[in-house]
Nucleic acid binder design. Structure first.
Lengths: 229, 229
DNA sequence: GTGACCAATAAGTAGTACTTTTTAGCGGGG
DNA sequence: CCCCGCTAAAAAGTACTACTTATTGGTCAC
C-alpha cells in the first residue's frame, strides 16, 4: 500500500482549490484521519504539505483553517494542476495565458542570445514538425511539437525562472487542444510564426525573436477572448 | 518549545539550496533526527515539505536523495528566500531581475485597464513618496515606497499570477538597497519614470504604462550588469 | 555466468501517551 | 454591570515504539 499520503493529498488538495472548503473553514486532523481511514500521522504530513503551499494554516487549539485564494502559492505545479482540473479552470487558464504572454517574448529574446547550436537544431526540428502535422487533424502530434518548441525556447533563455513556465505552457496548450478546437486544424499563421521564431533565434536576432513570440502569445490571448470572453 | 519543525526546516532548506549537499547525496532520516535532536516524526514532516518543494526525493530503502537544482520549485517563496541568503545569491538576484523585466511591463499595461480609482490613488501617493524621499540618504523610506508602488501595480493588473511577483520585486529592491548603493541617492530618472507610470495608469494608457515600466526594469538590468557583470 | 531467492536495511504506517498553547467560560472584584 | 484574570478543556504538536513494506545487493544453485 504505497502512498497513503499521496492519496489523501490528492483528495484534499483539489477539494480546497475547488473552493469546496470556503476560506476560513476549519478542518480537524482527527476527523480527517477518520474520514480518509488513515492515521493522524499521515494526516499531519499532508497538512504540512498543504501548509507549505499556503492553502491552509494550522493553529493550535483552533484547527487547520483554509486560507483565502490570495494566499495560495499559485506557482506550485500541483496547485496549478488542481485548479486546472477543478471549478475555476477558465480563470486559471486565462491567468496562465497572460503569464505566458509576459514571459515567453522575453525568453525568446534571451534565447536568441544564449541558445546553443543543439537547441537551435531542436527548435527548427520542432517547428518543422509543427508544419508537418498542421493539417489533416493530427492535433495530438502537433501538440507534442508545439509544447516541445516552447519548452526549448524557455530553457534556451538561460534563466532558471523561465524553464518551469514550460509546464504552464504545456498545460495551456493541452487544455486548448483537448477542449474545443479539437476538430479544426491549427491556424497556419501561428505555424509560420513558430518557424520564423526558430530562424530569428538561430540568427541571434533578439528583437525579432521577441516580437514574433509576442505575436504568438497575442494570438493565444485573442483566441481565449473569442472562446471565453 | 514552538516550532521544532520550522527550526529543522530552516536549517536543512538553506543547506540544500546552498549546495551543501550536492545533488544525488543521500540523507537518512534517523541520522537527521539524531543530528538535530528531534524525533523521527518531526524529520519526516520536514522531509515531506522539502519533497513538496522538489528539493529532495524520498525513496524506500535508499534514503532521502537531494535533487538537482533544475528540479527545484524555484517559485516557492521559501526557496527564493533561502537562495537569496545563500551562496548563489548573485545568480538568483539576476534571474529574479530578468523575471521582473518580463512580468512588470505587462502587468503595468493591464493595470492601466483594470486599476480601481483607489489603486490609482495609492500609486500616485507612493510615487510622490518616492520623490519626497529620493534625496538626502533616506534610502529606507524610499525603498518602502518603491516596493509598495510595484506591489500595487502588480495587484492592479488583476492577474492572480502577477500579485506574488511583488515578493520577488521586494526581495530584489531590498537586496539592491542594502547591498551597495546604500550611500548614493536613487537615480532621479528612475524616480521620474515611476511618477509617469502612475500617470499613465491613471489615464488608462496601457501602451505608455507598459513602455515606461519597461524602461524602469531595463534600468534595473543595466544596474545589475554594471554591478555584477 | 546467469537467474532467482533471501536477508538486511531504511523508509512508511500506525497507535499511544504526553505536552503545549490558546481560547472560552466562569467567577470575583471594581 | 462590566471588565479583568484565572482555569479548564480542546486540539494540535511532539515523541516513542512497534510493525510493515519495498528495495537492493549478495549468495547460492542451476
Amino acid at each position: 500500500m504505497s502512498g497513503q499520503h499521496a492519496r489523501v493529498l490528492d483528495t484534499l488538495g483539489p477539494a480546497i482549490t475547488a473552493g469546496e472548503y470556503p476560506p476560513g473553514s476549519v478542518l480537524r486532523t482527527e476527523e480527517l484521519a477518520r474520514r480518509h481511514e488513515v492515521s493522524r500521522t499521515v494526516v499531519r504530513e499532508v497538512i504540512r504539505v498543504l501548509e507549505s503551499m499556503r492553502l491552509v494554516e494550522s493553529r493550535r487549539r483552533v484547527g487547520v483553517t483554509v486560507l483565502p485564494a490570495e494566499e495560495w502559492n499559485v506557482y506550485d505545479p500541483r496547485v496549478i494542476r488542481w485548479r486546472l482540473s477543478g471549478a475555476d479552470r477558465p480563470r486559471q487558464l486565462r491567468s496562465l495565458t497572460v503569464l505566458r504572454s509576459a514571459v515567453e517574448p522575453v525568453a525568446a529574446g534571451l534565447a536568441a542570445r544564449n541558445a546553443t547550436p543543439e537547441q537551435c537544431a531542436e527548435l527548427t526540428e520542432h517547428a518543422l514538425g509543427m508544419v508537418a502535422t498542421s493539417r489533416g487533424g493530427q492535433l495530438e502530434a502537433y501538440l507534442v511539437h508545439d509544447v516541445a518548441f516552447h519548452r526549448v525556447v524557455l530553457r534556451a533563455s538561460g534563466n532558471e525562472m523561465f524553464t518551469p513556465i514550460g509546464d504552464v505552457v504545456a498545460a495551456v496548450l493541452a487544455g486548448r487542444t483537448r477542449h474545443h478546437v479539437m476538430f479544426e486544424d491549427p491556424d497556419p499563421a501561428a505555424v509560420t510564426l513558430h518557424v520564423r521564431v526558430a530562424e530569428a533565434i538561430r540568427a541571434g536576432d533578439a528583437a525579432r525573436a521577441e516580437s514574433l513570440t509576442r505575436d504568438i502569445t497575442l494570438g493565444a490571448l485573442r483566441e481565449l477572448d473569442v472562446l471565453a470572453p
